[in-house]
């Protein structure tokens, strides 16, 4: 039964990707990208990758179609061009890469076999010892925040770089690099009363759910990234309905940019803490004498740093994109 769901989802994924090759309009492609993200997230659930499904749903089906939409809106629909001659480069390159990939899959261990090398060398230690060494049930969070914490620091830096890069590219002249919006009068004819009322009821629960996900990361699926994305999507929902100037008054752009830098520093400083007392970088055993509670404190603080950075960077990117769009309108 599990295999059936897995195969059907894969077929749907390939069908959506095929449709994306064929479909011409940008709005239609955005919709299909959103469907593709949802399918991908469901596939990850059937593959027992719970945290990854969480993130892919929040990012792949939530944030990236939204950014695509803002771009499509800012550039206007962009008239679909007639398909040019099929480029010869594609006809040559794609089969060559496909052949190389197929060669690659020939000697791979069969799918799902428990004695594949990947499951017998490094991973068993995480599964067996993380219970005593770190003491939290969600092994993915313990590997993410403790065993390979430097990877996560690198990743937080990637999302911070994306924020800096978007601001550097989209910073409209005259602003100190932040999307301080010029006042756009709320001249939308219909104020969407129903949407605003319902959203006003839902947004507090979404923010509460984001905090739950942030601090529930040790026991079930969740953690800094997912919480950050959900927090940012609540702000984006508020921004969509009440317009950019209102949301900029609630969550000021300068503060959000400052927070994205502070989040990375929180993560970095917790690492440097260990160096001051001679332990290697990002070694949490300095926070408390009992090693397990030290790990808990370390992971909690680190996940908080991740959550702050991800939430503020996605909000910064939304402001930069929405600001482009609103100026085009005024």
């Amino acid at each position: 039964m599990e295999l059936l769901v897995n195969i059907v989802l894969l077929i749907l994924l390939v069908a959506t990707a095929g449709a994306l090759v064929v479909v011409r309009g940008l709005l239609a492609s955005t919709m299909l990208t959103s469907v593709y993200g949802l399918l991908c997230a469901s596939f990850f659930v059937t593959m027992d990758a719970v945290d990854v499904a969480f993130t892919e749903a929040a990012v792949g089906a939530g944030v990236s179609p939204l950014l695509l939409l803002l771009t499509v809106a800012a550039i206007g629909r962009g008239e679909p061009r007639p398909v040019g001659a099929l480029p010869v480069l594609a006809i040559v390159l794609v089969p060559v890469t496909a052949a190389l990939l197929i060669i690659g899959t020939l000697d791979m261990p069969p799918f799902g076999s428990p004695d594949a090398p990947a499951h017998t060398h490094v991973a068993p230690r995480y599964l067996q010892l993380s219970g005593e060494e770190i003491g939290i049930p969600n092994v993915v969070t313990s590997v993410l925040a403790s065993y390979r914490a430097f990877d996560t620091l690198g990743e937080v830096l990637v999302i911070f770089t994306a924020g800096v890069a978007v601001l550097l590219i989209l910073a409209t002249p005259g602003q100190r690099g932040s999307a301080r919006p010029r006042y756009v009068p709320d001249n939308h004819r219909d104020p969407h009363t129903i949407l605003q009322i319902v959203s006003r009821i839902l947004i507090p629960f979404i923010l509460l759910f984001a905090l739950y996900v942030q601090f529930h990361g040790e026991y079930g699926p969740g953690g800094g990234f997912q919480a950050g994305v959900i927090f940012a999507s609540a702000i984006i929902l508020y921004g969509l309905l009440y317009g950019l100037p209102t949301v900029c008054r609630v969550v000021r752009p300068a503060v959000v940019e400052w927070l994205s830098a502070v989040g990375v520093l929180i993560f970095g400083i917790t690492g440097v803490f260990a160096m001051l007392s001679g332990r290697p970088f990002l070694d949490y055993s300095v926070f408390a004498d009992d090693p397990v509670t030290a790990q808990h404190i370390g992971i909690l603080v680190v996940e908080l740093g991740v959550g702050i950075t991800v939430a503020s960077v996605i909000t910064v990117i939304y402001y930069a994109f929405a600001n482009q769009f609103e100026t085009a309108e005024s």
Binding site: V59, L144, D151, V158, A162
Partner: peptide, 24 residues
């Protein structure tokens, strides 16, 4: 195996970072 999940959490964030810079 939890290790690929950790790697892919990083890769998804890299993907969204590249997409947002590309769209900008």
């Amino acid at each position: 195996n939890p290790l690929p999940h950790v790697l892919i959490l990083t890769a998804i964030v890299v993907g969204i970072a590249t997409t947002s810079v590309g769209l900008a």
